[in-house]
């Protein structure tokens, strides 16, 4: 029967799409579990080093490290952590919106902005948006390795050391839970004292340093920045998988609804065709 041929092919193609989206959903779900584990594994180190650095920022050291000094802001750097692939809902769009809002704030004050982009989505976006991209890194895969990031981070740190940048931010998605990811703009440099312990007022203590303050702080603070960026990348990765899982689940559900509707239309059309045929036959017989 030739009735509703177009509808049947349409249903078939939607079913195929549904198969793909539901497979992607399952893949994302299993990847998300692993990404979450990775995030949880490196969290203690990132938290602890943040605590230590918070103490350092609060102390009154004999040697003021470059990373601890507030300078007049003439140029800021943004490290934007995005995903490599799409099909993860509004994750990247929301992130870029948050970044642009923060960047616009600086631009209104006449401050120039440099970018370090991680992930091909950010690379593509900031190429279109315009601006001075000084480092780009993509293709980190599902299990990012800290050593892959060192190069891009170093570009930013060198620029900061040479006084080309006066402030560095990192922008990434904060993994709240599977359903919620929140874009976050976090200041990396200069370091900020821990806000929680502000109540003690100015402190006058200093550390004993072994071997000496300069070497130690140089190494520790670079390590700090690297660990924070790594943590941002790992967290963003967990967000990507979670967002993709949700997006694909929605797509699968929507495909199901679409199929149901089309099936109904198809059945109605088929029924109508049969009814018409019968009435034609009956009409023909009566005429004879």
């Amino acid at each position: 029967m030739a009735v509703g041929k177009e509808i049947r092919t349409q249903i078939g193609s939607i079913k195929n799409t549904q198969k793909i989206t539901s497979a992607m959903e399952m893949v994302a779900a299993s990847k998300m579990r692993k990404a979450q584990e990775r995030m949880a594994a490196s969290q203690p180190y990132a938290n602890q080093i943040r605590k230590v650095v918070g103490h350092i920022a609060k102390a009154s050291p004999e040697y003021k490290h470059l990373y601890l000094e507030e300078r007049d802001v003439k140029r800021v750097g943004y490290i934007i952590v995005s995903t490599d692939r799409g099909l993860c809902g509004g994750l990247n769009t929301n992130l870029f919106k948050a970044a642009i809002k923060s960047i616009q704030g600086w631009m209104d004050k006449g401050v120039d902005v440099d970018y370090c982009v991680i992930g091909s989505k950010a690379t593509a976006f900031f190429r279109r948006y315009g601006g001075n991209v000084i480092a780009a890194k993509s293709g980190l895969g599902d299990a990012p390795v800290a050593s892959d990031l060192v190069g891009s981070v170093k570009v930013m740190l060198d620029a900061y050391d040479q006084g080309e940048l006066d402030r560095v931010y990192v922008v990434y998605n904060n993994f709240v839970n599977t359903m919620t990811q929140k874009p976050l703009v976090q200041q990396l440099l200069p370091l900020q004292a821990d806000a929680e312990h502000e109540e003690t007022g100015p402190s006058h203590w200093d550390y004993l340093y072994e071997p000496d303050a300069k070497d130690l702080l140089d190494k520790l603070l670079v390590r700090y920045v690297e660990s924070q960026v790594y943590q941002a990348v790992v967290e963003n990765n967990a967000c990507e998988q979670a967002a993709r899982m949700i997006a694909m689940k929605n797509a699968t559900d929507n495909a199901g609804n679409l199929i149901d509707e089309l099936q109904l239309i198809y059945n109605k059309a088929r029924q109508a065709a049969i009814t018409q045929e019968i009435s034609e036959i009956v009409g023909g017989a009566a005429a004879v």
């Binding site: 102390a59 340093y209 130690l216």
Partner: peptide, 19 residues
């Protein structure tokens, strides 16, 4: 084991930072 030798840290030790 610090870079300048072993360190024993008891409660009340002065603030210290080492590699």
């Amino acid at each position: 084991a610090g870079v300048l030798g072993d360190l024993g840290l008891a409660p009340g030790h002065a603030p210290l930072l080492t590699e």
